[in-house]
Design a protein around this nucleic acid. Structure first.
Lengths: 193, 193, 193, 193
DNA sequence: GATGAATGAGAGTTCATTCAT
DNA sequence: TATGAATGAACTCTCATTCAT
């Protein structure tokens, strides 16, 4: 398990980085927030950048774990995805400070981190895509491009759940999820286009 | 009309900001790229922040203009959206440096800018939502929550078009658009969930 | 020629480094002494270390130039050395701040600098040794190990001239030089040892 | 007698200070080398500076003791000096790390230390000078300025012995000493200058 | 006595901004 | 207008010293 003080600092860093962004965050401020001396930050992290990376990895890992653990349950895909969205809402709502980072993590440019994030992202995408593949085989999902489905689903996640929380500041309820999934079930446009 | 030198500086700023991000961009570098003296930047912009804001507004306006001009054409919604995606791809492909900013502009935390961006975003969302409303009335779109449809469509835009370009570095072709819209037409899941 | 302000800073650095040593010298102090802003130091030097190196090279070069220019004159070795010591005294007396550095320059541990200093030192030693070789041939100097003579002469230079100035704070006069050279002529010990 | 742990720390300090210089030596490193906890260093020394002073005094005292004990033996000066050089070589060779400090100790700028070193230096110089005085009286040494002889002899010590060891990294042999003393006996220059 | 985690003053360096030319 | 040398506030990181255990 992580050292208590290290956790304390990561928690503080998460808050301050999320609020101000990397460059406008001063180590001084993180230390104050974590209730330790400035120098102590450097007992646990080599540099500001190192702290940022660890904090991102920590947040992203916890976020992905929530989602993947649901994906691995034994349920029809539709149910899995619904459950995943519900738990994701809880997580993002409880971690609104990091939510911003999690949703834009694709964009981060720090090299070491970027590759790690990409790997995590791709792992998740592959898992989700293979779920769609299986569901197409079992007939739960309409035959089509599974990787496209994955992208569409991620779009819904981000726009319907994520941004709704962090930009509009509201917590989506189960009804919204049902409606979103229903739209993906029945379609949006009528056939005669 | 914008002063020639001012345009020159904004163009340079767009490139450099996009490549390096706000804080890693030095005024020195923008000036060099724009082929003016460092001091001259301050003849046209009050500060680095001011320059960033103007450059973002400029980029976002051009981006939204492309999309809105299509939305205002006299076509069935499905055709409008397809055309919009096609033109959006061209724009993002030609402006890959800024694409990153445009896609995450919702997230920007700079105060003055944030409100401006929010207004632009909301204007676009309202326009799109009212398009869905009209289409529901005319029967082109399945009855449902138009504002949800808007969110779903934006999710597709971002994940299927935007990130495909800036993360995977590939230019989506018309076929991909057709498939994405088809998925939104026929739906993804079978009914018996 | 060197930029005026750069000279100003090197001059200030020479004083402060000589007085306080490398690590106890603050850039702030050099800037104040040079009557420029702290940041300006970095317009002319990449770092404190870089400034130190340039300042050392500058001082050592001026010191060695004084000595070598005499060595290259057309005089009997004894006269050359006497003249060299006289001019060296003037130089060290006028540059007491750097004298300390010049005399201990063999000891400096900064890598880049060390090699440069070693090269300069060796060049001087070779020149002096070859002077002794020539003088042995012409019969001005007693046959013997020219390289040993060089070391002995340098010992005299340092102990009789250098440290006399920087530790005892007194300026050696011509008489002292004459006596020192006389001792090296007649010898110190009687033969029957 | 010195406490065992205190000796341990001084020994470690000697090594590390000699290798890295005062400011690049971290208390952490000395503690590790001495195999004690960082805090323990402060049980025996008031501060880093205090430790440095004690360590220098310790090294210089051992160095001077070697030399003075020879000077106090009952031998002709020439033999004493030869023996002194031989033992000095052994000492410096065995203590190469500190040799650098010992040879430049005249130059140290730390106030408390400086005066102590000066006193030690002057005591040695006086002793050596009075040896030359006695030797002049007994006729072993050519009549002349005994204090100048002392300086010349110290020059030879430093340049022929000290720097040969610490810069060239070679151990002088007895032959070299004989040759150096011979040069001081027969002289270097022929009389007709 | 012994430890080593915690502290915080202080230094080198950067870079947006100014202003004399 | 246009320039770019000069400025100095502000930041990250280090490390001697302290002190609760």
């Amino acid at each position: 398990m992580l050292n208590i003080k290290k956790r304390q600092i990561i928690k503080a860093a998460t808050q301050v980085f999320a609020e101000k962004g990397y460059h406008d965050t001063k180590i001084d401020e993180i230390a104050r927030e974590a209730d330790v001396a400035k120098g102590s930050v450097y007992l646990y992290f080599q540099s500001k950048e190192d702290l940022f990376i660890e904090m991102m990895k920590d947040g992203v890992k916890r976020y992905k774990d929530v989602k993947i653990s649901v994906l691995e349950q034994d349920l029809p895909l539709y149910q899995k995805l619904k459950k995943m969205l519900i738990e994701e809402i809880e997580f993002l709502w409880d971690n609104q400070q990091v939510a911003r980072f999690l949703l834009t993590s694709d964009i981060v440019t720090q090299d070491t981190l970027y590759n790690w994030l990409l790997k995590v992202r791709n792992t998740f995408i592959e898992k989700l895509t293979s779920e769609f593949d299986k569901a197409i085989e079992t007939g739960d999902v309409i035959a089509g491009d599974s990787s496209l489905y994955t992208r569409i689903f991620r779009g819904v996640e981000h726009q319907v759940i994520g941004y709704y929380i962090i930009i509009d500041g509201k917590k989506p309820n189960e009804e919204m999820i049902d409606k979103a999934l229903a739209a993906l079930t029945k379609g949006i446009f009528k056939e005669n286009n």
